[in-house]
Design a protein around this nucleic acid. Structure first.
Lengths: 222, 222
DNA sequence: CGCGCTCTTGACTAGGGTCAAGTGCAGTGG
DNA sequence: CCACTGCACTTGACCCTAGTCAAGAGCGCG
């Protein structure tokens, strides 16, 4: 990617830190080079809904990049390595490299496709399906960047956090995980997700992950 | 907006037609000049989750604009007037008018902010809150483009469709609407939403619609 | 050692889904 | 003019998924 031109120096951040805070005015976007993070939105009553979970190669905070104040918070799940994206030069770069603008747009589109899928999960899938879907998606993405195999992947997410992403309570998530474990479909233990019977998982839950492998439209080829 | 340069001629489409179909390859984006539409994603079991509802002034299909195949369908709720957005010239336009690229990015961001809010609703709010939130949001947006007042607005959405957007069954939505009617908060009848006690609605449900009025970040001013 | 964290499990409850039946149209055709 | 059909909306009875409350286990850490 030509995104290099937009990037600042490497920054290392420890686990559990807030990279961007909801309501923050001077916020920037980052490329996540290594480690895990998640984006959430808080509710007035103190609850929070996790919007998405990011791994190496993902962009952080592009969503609210152009908004004056970020409406979401970003928190690290592990130690991470990020590079700040230089937003002041955006418009210059677009002029000199319009294809980069398209690349950025494409990255955002992929991001949105995942968010849409998440939204569908919360709207129409029950707890087990949500859980399976999320873990399979994370597994597929981890595999794409070499952080896992088709058998499983290291997943530094606590049940509390995963539950906040899935829109269910940690207690119920725990029950679901037990159920999946007992029916020999997958195991999530000690930060390690193991797909025992991946084929059966995908089939019996009718999952479709095409949206992860979206090609860029012909628009770019010119 | 300078979006004019990207637009094709006016097109009129009747109510209930699919503008873009899920899985379609040659799909384009549109500006919705008048009328209502919604975007949904279908599930293998025949259900569907409505992602968002669009009114005059909104963009249709920008989300999957850069993806080879659209993963969502767009359907008209009324007769609509749209203008096709010329995507072949995108990269040219970006070169000559990089600020337009930013404007587009900004439009996408606002769009995403609404989607995030929708996601939060599905994840963390119960049926009444979801309903109130959705109707207040639609009301605020309708008011912004002159299609309603703070008292209410014309809302050409059937309970079935609204339920599919809210992630609840039409039956339950009906119960919720009755409850809201009986507690003298709002009435949704004959395609007309009337806020009886808007202040109490917003207060008792702790709604925050700041995300609808996001200013563009300073990035653009250069 | 005790505190705090994540995880686990059980018992009970409630919000929302399912099933089923009925009402009130607008459209259509006899 | 009056069936007859189809659709959007209502409402009731019942059930099940997931939330709540409560308690305990295992573990890293000051």
């Amino acid at each position: 990617m030509m995104l290099q031109r937009l990037q600042g120096p490497r920054i290392f951040v420890e686990s559990g830190k807030e990279l961007v805070h909801e309501g923050q005015h001077q916020h920037s976007a980052y490329v996540l080079c290594s480690g895990w993070a998640y984006t959430y939105k808080g509710l007035p009553d103190g609850q929070r809904q996790i919007i998405d979970i990011q791994i190496a190669g993902d962009l952080l905070g592009i969503r609210s990049l152009l908004l004056k104040t970020s409406d979401q918070s970003i928190v690290t799940l592990t130690e991470v390595e990020v590079r700040k994206i230089n937003t002041e030069r955006l418009s210059d770069v677009f002029r000199s490299a319009p294809r980069l603008a398209l690349a950025l747009l494409w990255a955002i589109s992929r991001d949105e496709a995942m968010m849409v899928e998440h939204l569908v999960s919360l709207g129409k899938r029950d707890a087990i399906m949500r859980t399976v879907h999320m873990l399979l998606e994370l597994g597929a993405r981890a595999e794409l960047v070499g952080l896992g195999t088709s058998q499983g992947f290291g997943c530094p997410i606590s049940q509390n956090i995963l539950a906040d992403a899935l829109g269910i309570t940690p207690i119920h998530l725990n029950r679901v995980l037990r159920q999946l474990r007992e029916s020999k479909l997958l195991v999530f233990k000690d930060g390690l997700v193991t797909f025992i019977d991946r084929k059966r998982l995908i089939e019996s839950f009718q999952m479709d992950f095409a949206y992860l492998n979206q090609d860029i439209a012909s628009v770019k080829k010119r």
